[in-house]
Simulated scan of single mutants.
Amino acid sequence: MTNTKYTIICILILASCKDYDQLKDISETKVEAYNSKEKTEAQIYTEDQQEIIDRYVYNCADKYSYRFNHHRYQECLDEGIKKGPNISYLWQQKAMPYFKARKYEVGMQYLDKAVELNKVRYLPYRGFIKCIFSKNYKEAIKDFEAIKAIEGNSIVMDHSYNFYLALSHLQLNHFEKAEEMFQNDVNAQIEQWGEKEYHHLSIFYLGVTQYEQKKWKEAIQSFDKTLEKYSMFSEVMYYKSTCLYELGQLEESREWYNKAIENGKAGNTISEANSLYENYPYQILWN
């Protein structure tokens, strides 16, 4: 999972979002520019270590589904770890299925070992897991601040470290700090890609921070910008309808609420790849 090229962000959005024709096309060049600091393994594998990876991951574990044949999948990795206990990738691969099965503490003991062996590669991934999967936001902040101290702001799982820091602060009700960080994240994307070339989740969560501070008009502006990127985003419609209600615009609020229900039931929700396994903050379960 961690070796996936960050350029798949566009593919993931297009494949999972029913309103893909409304999303602004982002060229490979722009994605590569934004993700230009793609990390490589800090640990250089020896020929013997790579042979172990090939044998026990690619030619063994990957032959099984970690969901339906999880015993065989884990047995392959256990054999690999016996042969190469200092190969961080084996520990990460062993951890990953447990997070998707929501066995967070089981998975974390293996991911901690991967971080111990290869901090630069797996510290941001662990921060992502703590933020999105196990919802351990204070610990996620520690991990992202630690990796930023080493290499500055970079990318993990399609978003910047600052995005996950902002999301963690939002979930801890640090609304002012989260708003500032999301705004900076949006500004950084605009600076890198050009006007309006930001990820729709960044501007959505910026709107959520404003909504939480009762900045109804500012929140609506952010939600409208989100809808320019993803016009059938049900959660945006819902929170916009709430803002309109607070402003006394009852008829318009009702219209957006009905749109939210219609689009939510149609599956037009948060479209991140890992939303298949975990609900993202402020995601609504419509069905």
Rank of each mutant, 00 (worst) to 15 (best):
K214H: 13
V156D: 00
Y58L: 13
T7I: 10
W256V: 07
K229C: 04
E278P: 04
K142T: 15
Y20I: 01
K148A: 01
Y205N: 07
H199Q: 12
A61D: 13
A114W: 03
E176K: 00
G152T: 09
K240G: 09
L167F: 10
L14H: 14
Q93N: 08
K18A: 14
H71Q: 12
V208E: 08
M1I: 13
Y205V: 02
R72Y: 02
K100Y: 14
A266H: 03
K148P: 12
A166H: 02
Y125T: 02
K100L: 13
M96Y: 07
K113G: 02
E75R: 10
G264K: 05
N263S: 04
I9Y: 06
L23D: 13
R126P: 08
Y161P: 15
A42R: 08
F144A: 10
G248C: 11
E180K: 10
R121C: 01
T7Y: 02
C17K: 11
A146F: 05
A188R: 12
I220P: 10
Q93E: 02
E116M: 07
D48K: 10
M237W: 01
S88T: 06
D21Y: 07
T226Y: 03
A149S: 12
T7N: 09
K37S: 14
A33G: 05
N3D: 09
T2R: 02
F223Y: 13
F163V: 03
H71F: 03
D224A: 09
S241Y: 04
A140K: 00
Y205D: 04
Y245E: 12
I9P: 00
C60T: 06
E179K: 15
K94L: 15
N162P: 01
L250M: 10
I147H: 03
Y205Q: 06
A149D: 08
A15N: 14
L123R: 15
E145P: 11
E278A: 12
I190D: 10
E272G: 03
S202E: 03
D112I: 01
D112S: 09
